[in-house]
Each structure stands twice: as C-alpha cells, then as structure tokens.
Design a protein around this nucleic acid. Sequence first.
RNA 1: GCGCCUGUAGCUCAGCUGGAUAGAGCAACGGCCUUCUAAGCCGUUGGCCGCAGGUUCGAAUCCUGCCAGGCGCGCCA
Length: 560
Amino acid sequence: MNIIQETKRRLAAVLEEAAVAARAAGEIDFEELPDFIVETPRDKTHGDFAANLALLLTKQARQAPRKIAEVIVKHVEMPQPGVASIEVAGPGFINFTLDNEWLLPVLPAVLAEDKEYGWSNVGKGTKIQVEFVSANPTGLLHMGNARGAALGDCIANLLTAVGYDVTREFYINDAGNQIINFGLSLEARYLQALGQEADIPEDGYHGVDLIETVKHFIDKYGDKYLDAEPSLRREMLVRFALEEKLTAIRQVLEDFGVTYDVWFSEQSLHDSGAVADTINELKKAGFVYEKDGALWFRATRFGYDKDEVLVRKNGTPTYFAADIAYHRNKFERGFEHVINIWGADHHGHVGRLKGSLKALNYDPDRLEVVLMQLVRLYQGGEILRMSKRTGQYVTLNELIEEVGRDAARYFFVMLKSDSHLEFDLDLARSQSSENPVYYVQYAHARIWSILRLAKERGIEVPAAREANLKLLKEQAEIELIKQIAALPDTVIGAALAREPHRLTRFAHDLASLFHSFYTSCRVLADDLEVRKARLVLVDATRITLRNVLNLLGISAPERM
RNA sequence: GCGCCUGUAGCUCAGCUGGAUAGAGCAACGGCCUUCUAAGCCGUUGGCCGCAGGUUCGAAUCCUGCCAGGCGCGCCA
C-alpha cells in the first residue's frame, strides 16, 4: 500500500476538477492545465499536502496567484473524505490539512505485507544488470572497491524491491598486460623462494601477499616448474594465483553481505572470439582505421574527444576492445538496461564506451554509469594514504574486522555517490552514540524489547482490525505513522535515482521519531485499548525499520 | 589547456529534481532514569548556501563567467 501516493493523486484530481469548474463558471481562464504537483511540505504548519497549481496558472489566467488559488478552492466540492481544511497560503499555495485518521489504514497494510512492505512494481520485471567492484583479481579489495560493493549491492537491492529482475555481476579482469605483469611478478617471487636471483619488474606487483601465494604454490607443486619453460611456468603460476585471489575476493564480499549471480571472465571474451568479432563489426560499420601500425576506433565520430586504440601495434587487443565486446555481450544476454558502478577516476571512459555502443547500433542510454568519488580514510584526524606500492592501504578484510560489516556498509552508503567520502575510522569503530548505525539499530532492538516484555506478560500484538487505531492521536504517534507511510515512495525514489543514501536518511528519521514516541508514549499502558493500538504501531515500525535495514544490507538486531 | 565531481552551521553531510521562515548528526552548553533498553529524549547556541551576474511569481537547486579543492585526459586496466 502506498497511501501517500494515492492521496496525492486523489487531491490532484480534486483540484483539477475544481479548476475546470471555475473555468466553466467564467472565473478563471486557461487553455491547458499545467503540470502541477501535490507535495508534502516540510513545514508542518503548511498542512499535510500542498499544491502549486495556482502559481503555475498565473501566466495563462493573468491573475494574481493567491486570487486564482482562492477561486479554485471555492470550487472544490466539500466535504472531501479525510480532508479537514483547505487553505490558500503564502504566495498562492493550496494547502490541505487532513484529519487525524487518514493515515491509519497504512498500519494494517504494513502488518499484512510484512516483508514486502515498501516494495512495488514500477520495474515491471525488466531485466537489469548491476556490475560493480570488478576489481583486479591480483590482490585484495581496498576502500574504493568497498564503497562500490556497498553501493552496487544496495542499488541492486533497491531495484529488486521496486520490481526489476536484477543480476549482480563481477567482471574479472583476467587478461591483458596486468596479467602478464602479474605472471612476471609471480615468477620472480617463485624463483626467489627457491633461492634464485630474480627481480620483480618495475611496473609489477610488489605486494608481499604474492610471497604468500607463491608459498602455497610451492606447497602444491614444489620446484616442479623451476626448470620449466618460462611461459608455461608463468601460466601455471597465474592460473593458481588467480584462483586463490578470486576465492579470497569472493569470500570477503560474502562477509560483506554481497553475493554475485555472475562472475564474468574477460579472458573468455578473447577465447570465444567475441573480441575479434566485435572489432570486425566496428570495421564493417566503417568506424575503424589504421594508424602507426595500430587499429583505431573513431570515437570522435560519436562525440568523444579523441580516437581510441582497439588493437595495438603488437597485435594484441586493448582493454577497451574487450570492454566493447563485454557490453555487447551484456545486451545479447537480454538485459534491457545495464548499470556500471565505476570509480570517478574512470569517468573519462564513459564517453568512448557509449560511443562504441552507438557505433554498434545500440542505444547508448541503455548503459548507465554511476560514478562514485574516491574514498579518503581518516584516522586520528589524519589522512591515511592509499598506496599499493608501499602496501599502506586498508583492505576490505581489515575494515570488516575493524569496524564491522554493518557500520562499514552504513558509512559507505550514507553519502551521495557524487560526494568525496571521508571515512573516519575512529568514528565507524566507536560503539557509541556518535555512531549513526547504532542509533538506528538501537531503535529496532528497543522495539523487540517491548515486544518481548509484552509476550512475557502474555500480551500479543493484536490483529490490526482488533485494535482501535483512532486512539493513536498523539503528535508523536501521528508523525511516526507518517514516516512509516512514506517508505514505498522513498524506496521508489531511491531506486530510480540510484541513491541509496536516501535510505539511511529515512532509517535515521524513522528511528528518531520512534525514540521520541518511546519517551512520550507508553506502549504497555494500563489502558487496554491504547495498549493494543500502540502495539500495532510499534510492530509496524519494527517491520518498516527492518525492511529498510534489509535493503541496506545491515542487520536488524533484536537485542543490543 | 580541456573534461567530470565537489563547495551549505566549528566538523561530517542532507536538502525529496524550482517552492513558503535552509535541515540533521557530531562538537559546545542546560535539563530528563523508583514504570517498556539513557547506545535514548527535550531544549539553547551556531548560516553573505564559494563569489558575481542571469532566467521567473519564486533559486542552495536551472544557465553563464570566475575562485578553490579532488579526479581524469596511455598502443595501462
């Protein structure tokens, strides 16, 4: 049930009728009704709903907006169910104040819908893919990947909740130069471990984790590849190491609450010929040319600022070429729409990729890239620099261990992806009132505590129809119900805008309203009827809060 | 030089796609536990919304130009 949206629609229809009636009476003049909105004003003194219709009519009607508003209001047929009063206010807003009971039907609906309260079907089962993290499988995940993980997973949750058919995908960059470097680095570590002189290439992987990986390799194969053909030796090392690294990545993501539907290998696109085929298609379409011994894509034909290499002088295809093949493959798999979560340092590639899709006759709008700004870590008021070279960076594994999954996810998703995230390790770690995660979870635990105590006393949450909900008329109660009723719209808005941070905000506000209610209204009151009504309200709050936490991928504890 | 993101309270950030007197959290200060979890509640203090123009009934929000910070502009991925 989405009572707010239903009410907005109803009030809009009422105003439309009134405006038309006013025109028929010759009191105002307009050709076409403008696209006005009925919104919930943030200032409570402006009523429950406000419409800007009169303000938008000023030009057509050639009258003062307040005057127009008054005329329209005069033609509203009263009484309207649930409407206590209609007023003209401010520059010409039409404000509706509803009676205390209009929201009450939401409570039985929440109890009935339970786990699905807040869900909807605006997605209509459309196949959509969210690709996120897709980190190099050559090491551990860092803070930037972690933000992408939290964001991507949460967006996927949101899309599922509003009725899309969602696939989570991890693109494994297991091809290209970095893998060659990876192999050379592993080889050097291998030889070193076996007492030989060997250097890791300049742009190789200097992280000490490879020493560990090579040790595992030796545990399994010993010095079997010491005198082997180097290319074979590297291949074996790479194969072994990739599997180990990917297993670790998969594991830490699971620990973070993220489970993928598809792990897609870049190498498989080369092996299947999909990359070569894609390059051929582009060639056939006439958007490819040769220069300096390399094969170029004419990205400038599609609004990009420079052309891009598809095949290097040495004959190997670039990452870009594989990426085009990959996205073509996504569409061939039947995804109507694909969303990529990328770090802002990749923003420059959006244009060329969209251009290549256009060249292949795909609508580039079917690819959507959500860019997230980089993460800066703070500890003790100082910036912790992330550097793979020096090995001084915090991994997702360490983060989960240090601050816990719930706090980490909450912090990553709390901000718009556009904003640079300053992650305060001390704050996330603190188990105190300063930490916003606990504030929200505490509300949930508090509710459970009430319900537990009720049960101990032999009191059950009554069926909603057995309670006289009209008794819920305290300010704190009404505000709480209003917030509960706002969940479906919040979820839809957050999903369509790809903005999970709206959920943390909603959760915080809901918790805050509950805490207020808790201090001013006693749930297990002496009055039996009041107690019943409040138990229904509290249970609806529990369901709403839990559902939001689920969407965020954060646990909803029953005790704290 | 060109492109993207950001600039709102002392700090970290919201501001529902243009609405009415700009909001939270933290920090600071003052109150509230013999009854359901004080990880809580109530109150006070705190603002040239980076600057300057423009668009209109109305701008933190849209447009233009500056200023400041971050990130890109590889035959790396």
